[in-house]
């Protein structure tokens, strides 16, 4: 199923790109149109995508994760065209290939830290015998010791780390982080970004962080502005997300 055109990371290798977006168009009901000519992310690469609020950052992540469909263009993750998949096939692919970290973490309330990570594994095709060992190792590597504490009993920083562990649980090709520091104070924001980058690097996952926080720019070698990637910024007449 791999798209032959994605078999390039720019290094001459045959390994598919972690993310490859081409000629993407998405039109909102309000008339606003999100356009993206091209965006590539190699395996294990990190990138910060900046943009002011309402410029379509969240929409772009939802498109990449296959939660909404584009009007035109293609998005491949690990060489697989996400939108060529339908229904359950796309859900399964998302579960094992894309990890997501949210601004509000979106942990499952009432579930323990360990269970939050295990749920992600349950939804993937990861062999069951690996689940507990991997969940515990991931959480411990991120400094979570109270594995059985419920999500709501953890501090904000701990919840953030559980969310990172969950995003990495199924060894995804790509981790999408949506304003991961927006709920944190500046000191904890720095720590969170470092933890997120380290964890992705350790697990070999590409990382795409979207944020409007300029203080994150110092942490990423590759930085882009979403409005600069737009083919037509003049089309941005409305607000979104």
């Amino acid at each position: 199923m791999a798209n032959a055109s994605d078999n390039s990371s720019g290094t001459g290798s045959s390994t598919p790109l972690a993310l490859n977006i081409r000629e993407l168009t998405f039109r909102y009901g309000t008339g606003f149109e999100l356009r993206l000519n091209a965006l590539q992310l190699a395996r294990g690469e990190e990138m910060l995508l900046m943009g002011k609020s309402g410029c379509g950052k969240s929409t772009l992540l939802q498109l990449i994760a296959g939660l909404i469909d584009p009007g035109a263009g293609s998005i491949t993750v690990g060489g697989q065209d996400m939108h060529a998949l339908r229904g359950a096939a796309r859900d399964h692919f998302r579960g094992r290939s894309v990890g997501m970290v949210f601004q509000t973490f979106n942990l499952l309330q009432g579930f323990s830290a360990r269970e939050n990570v295990l749920v992600a594994m349950l939804m993937s095709d990861m062999p069951k015998q690996e689940w507990h060992a991997r969940a515990d190792a991931l959480l411990r590597s991120l400094g979570i010791e109270r594995l059985d504490a419920r999500a709501e009993e953890l501090s904000v920083g701990q919840q953030q780390r559980v969310a990172i562990a969950r995003a990495l649980a199924c060894r995804p090709t790509l981790v999408l982080a949506d304003e991961p520091t927006a709920s944190l104070d500046p000191d904890n924001a720095v720590i969170a970004v470092r933890i997120l980058r380290d964890a992705c690097r350790e697990q070999g996952a590409a990382l795409l962080v979207v944020s409007h926080d300029p203080s994150l720019e110092a942490h990423f070698a590759r930085r882009e502005r979403l409005d600069a990637l737009h083919a037509s910024s003049a089309a941005m007449s409305g607000a979104t997300s």
Binding site: A88, D91, H92, G95, N106, L107, L108, V119
Partner: peptide, 16 residues
């Protein structure tokens, strides 16, 4: 709905 959305992001199908 929020719980459902989280599970869907994690790979749960609509049928599940």
């Amino acid at each position: 709905r929020r719980q459902v959305a989280i599970l869907r992001v994690l790979g749960a199908t609509r049928a599940r």
